[in-house]
Amino acid sequence: MRATGSLILSVMVVAGLTVAVSRAADEPPAAQNEANAPATAQPPASVVPVTPKDAAPPPSVTIIGASDAHGVLGRDVRSAADEDMGHVVDIIVDRTGHVRAAVIDFGGFLGVGSRKIVVDWNAMRFGKIANKSDSITLELTKAQVAAAPEYKEDAPIVVLGASGSLQPLQAVQ
């Protein structure tokens, strides 16, 4: 029934457009109807013509090979001992746009009992390990991650780093 209704609506739209085009073709142009029409039409005062100097320059283009880069959201994270550490659910950037940390959904089973923790971006390694191509390895143990405080939006962020490698986040004014 739904397909029939869509078909009828499509036929009605096409028929309406056909009638409108036919009527427009039968009417003479407005400039021919007016005897005192100027020879060259002027655009309305509110229209600003675009000149080549106003045009935006073409964007730069970079081509990255499919095996050279991958997205990280949703990707599984493993420990160096090949333990399941969860998966990346968000990325934390500072006010200058530099990546500082990753939010990992850690623990639980099928989404129940899991919690989000934040790990330093520099504590993550991207590459191939133990028959896992394109894996993310975290330089922290499962026990260290389990002891990390939970990430909550709009609260101070506690970032877990590997071996004191974190630098304090400088406030940008």
Rank of each mutant, 00 (worst) to 15 (best):
D84Y: 08
P149A: 15
G97K: 06
P43E: 14
R125S: 11
E83A: 07
A3M: 12
L140W: 03
A3D: 15
A148T: 14
V89P: 00
D90E: 04
L73W: 02
D94P: 05
V19F: 15
V119L: 01
S6Y: 15
P156Q: 09
K116N: 04
A45E: 13
V21F: 05
V19K: 12
R125G: 09
I136W: 00
T141Y: 04
P168E: 08
P49Y: 15
K132G: 04
A39V: 15
V50D: 09
V145S: 01
A80E: 10
S67M: 10
A171H: 14
A148V: 12
R100P: 03
I92E: 02
A15D: 13
D154F: 07
V77L: 00
D120G: 06
P57H: 04
T96D: 06
A15Q: 13
A147I: 14
R23E: 09
A35F: 01
S135P: 01
P49F: 15
K152P: 03
R75Y: 01
E153L: 02
I157R: 06
P57R: 05
A171F: 14
P59T: 04
A55R: 07
E150Y: 05
V158R: 09
A171C: 14
Q170R: 14
T18N: 09
V172C: 10
K128W: 10
M124Y: 01
A15H: 13
P38I: 10
K132I: 05
G113K: 00
G127F: 00
A66T: 11
G108A: 03
M85L: 02
A15V: 15
K142S: 08
A155L: 06
G5V: 14
R2T: 15
